[in-house]
Design a protein around this nucleic acid. Sequence first.
DNA 1: CATATTAAGTCCATAACGTGGATTAAATAG
DNA 2: CTATTTAATCCACGTTATGGACTTAATATG
Lengths: 420, 420
Amino acid sequence: MTQAVRHDAMRARNLGVVLTEVRRSGPVTRAALADATGLTKTTVSKLVGDLIAAGMVTETGTLRDGERGRPGTTLALSGGRVAALGLEINVDYLSACVVDLTLAVRLRYTQPVDNSSHTPVETLSHLGKIIHRAVDEARAAGLVIGGATLAVPGPVEGGLLHSAPNLGWRDVDVGGLLGTAPSTGAAPEAPRPPAAAGWGFPVEVDNEANLAALGELWFGSGRGDFLHVSGEIGIGAGLVIGGALFRGARGLAGELGHVVVFPGGPACRCGGRGCLEQYAGQEALLRAAGLDDPDELVRRLRDGDGRALRACERAGHALGVALTSATNLLDPGTIVLGGVFAPLFPWISGAAAATMADRLAAMRRAVPELAVSRLGGDAATLGAAGKVIQRIIADPVSHLAAAGAVPGPPAGRSPAGTVR
Amino acid sequence: MTQAVRHDAMRARNLGVVLTEVRRSGPVTRAALADATGLTKTTVSKLVGDLIAAGMVTETGTLRDGERGRPGTTLALSGGRVAALGLEINVDYLSACVVDLTLAVRLRYTQPVDNSSHTPVETLSHLGKIIHRAVDEARAAGLVIGGATLAVPGPVEGGLLHSAPNLGWRDVDVGGLLGTAPSTGAAPEAPRPPAAAGWGFPVEVDNEANLAALGELWFGSGRGDFLHVSGEIGIGAGLVIGGALFRGARGLAGELGHVVVFPGGPACRCGGRGCLEQYAGQEALLRAAGLDDPDELVRRLRDGDGRALRACERAGHALGVALTSATNLLDPGTIVLGGVFAPLFPWISGAAAATMADRLAAMRRAVPELAVSRLGGDAATLGAAGKVIQRIIADPVSHLAAAGAVPGPPAGRSPAGTVR
DNA sequence: CATATTAAGTCCATAACGTGGATTAAATAG
DNA sequence: CTATTTAATCCACGTTATGGACTTAATATG
């Protein structure tokens, strides 16, 4: 239900609105903020004062724009205090990153581990150590972690990982094992992340493909509304519309890999036949090219190897068919190819785009453009951290409650109101 | 951008929250409303007072529940004053309905017209007359029309109908021709419907398939999150998630009819090949059955005609393949078959469900259930009216501004605050 | 039947927050 | 150097929700 608004909620909301606007329009003056938000200068000044006290905004200087009149002091997000932790468990590595409010990446770990040969408990305890180290280093740099998100390679609902075929995991309560209250993830309008359990900050768990899409949105080439295709061993996709992820009823939307390309095609591990994965998945691609190493495939393609080229062309065609269906159903603005498709883009995108153009042009004024992801394997980890930052900026109050009181300078005029 | 909240916005929001809760939980007491919304009894009383003054809520009696303590007076939506107009232009008819706040249908017209043989201007002027009559009759019944929505058979963006192949229309500014400021429709987060232009109330234009899905949500068998398939000459679909329509980037989502079922199949009018429409569209179905009247097809099916049965089975299979792709991409909770599929449900759903079960069961814990629409051709018209009601209930203030001041009884204690 | 108890709804003083006009500060224009 | 313009702050005020006291109307109890 949409919640009732009381005075504190009004204030919390307005703090979020101001902070969002500060991020959106770079360095701005208080006057410009008042203009953009519709609040009065007085109110903006008060809100900004609290945000500065909370270490989320700083004055960056005075705006010398040559106009007459007193110049304004510009405000920008401060990367100095609040940060977020992005985590990822994948088949062959664990990774973590710390990102500050400005989306600058402050720390970054990647540790190769064969997680498919470990139990969930082992892997999560390993991850726990990494979290500890990251939090310590962040603290040493003066940063306060406001929350974390963990990316896992499979569908998640309420902290529960249903299945991760590549890890061999099934029904793992990742949230619980990480030592946090089971947090949101797929729930569309989650009640509110639990205010810290074991770590002193809330931890969420979400699907890697979804987070990779968000990573592309905030750190990569995703602009506006787009579908991000993250081909790994399976093929997943995340749709971003209006800055938010589309998840479907149970958070299982975006399973592009099992869109039917050819109903009578080869059997798929999903029980169906002729799924996209059977034509454009990493395994299928390598088999068709007669190889077993993705890097080798790229080398062959560069060398103009006929069999490799044909394999990619065929995969691109299948991808185009699946993306035609996806475009008809999801109507993405653009389509970003990431994961294994990123390095193969030059050899796959042509056939895919041509197929889509043939099949879509007559019905729509614009066929979605194919773009290549600029992010490597980091997309999901970054997206995980970015998601936390996004929440903090949209609703600074509830997230700062979790991070504890503001450790501001004890002296000076006791600030009229610190962010509560 | 999420807007800043000022005092008036807070109040407006809370009025909407209270009204929404009144609808959600049937007859309720003020005390129960306070409980549910988190507002205090005092505040709820004030808000309810204004809603009663505005004619949107009435006291329905006292709650004699046998508990001790003073019994509460129950409140419910009042159908007596505020209403909405649902309109539809389709190939062979114009229709209109007036629905009150309680979603009771107060008036209903359907006028058979062959609109494909008329120009947009002619058709819209004809519709204008119908609107006038509906508004007059509504007024005679003491109702104030708070807004209207027009359903058209094609994709709409900002009042502009891109193409309606069955009408032979292309790029028609329906909103403009209806004599209103171009209103929203597909825009995801529309700024706000224009407060009345020619009619004294805002008029929106939207796609028939989308509105039919909403009709199913409010008037039919749509529960929770579902995909509504509205097969007419084309096949469209509308996805409802969390009570809201999913529209994609440009409002073109849900084109189920052009999902690829068989990439090498027969050419489709969309330029592609093997689209669902070529297997399960009304024309394809009738051709396969050797008939040209949908009603005749149903008769033959009832009589057990082999050719008709086989045609439906094949169409059901194709529908199952397309819905498999749709489920993987959209993750609907259930799937409601409407339009031409509703009468054919007994003969089509079996094959479709079986195909989906085969292809989806291994990956998900639950395959979306197939349900039949209980609404006839009225789904879109009703959904159109319901959409207006939905908006009014969520935000009573801005819609009542359009409908003019409340014509309450002039005597009595001048109400402290009428809804502004 | 009288009284206690309980819950609904209203009243009133208060607190929180944003508003709007006045004021001060700091720049450019002439 | 003065007028003008814009930024930011200050202060009195209006709006809205709060919370406790109060009134009302029912059931429970003796």
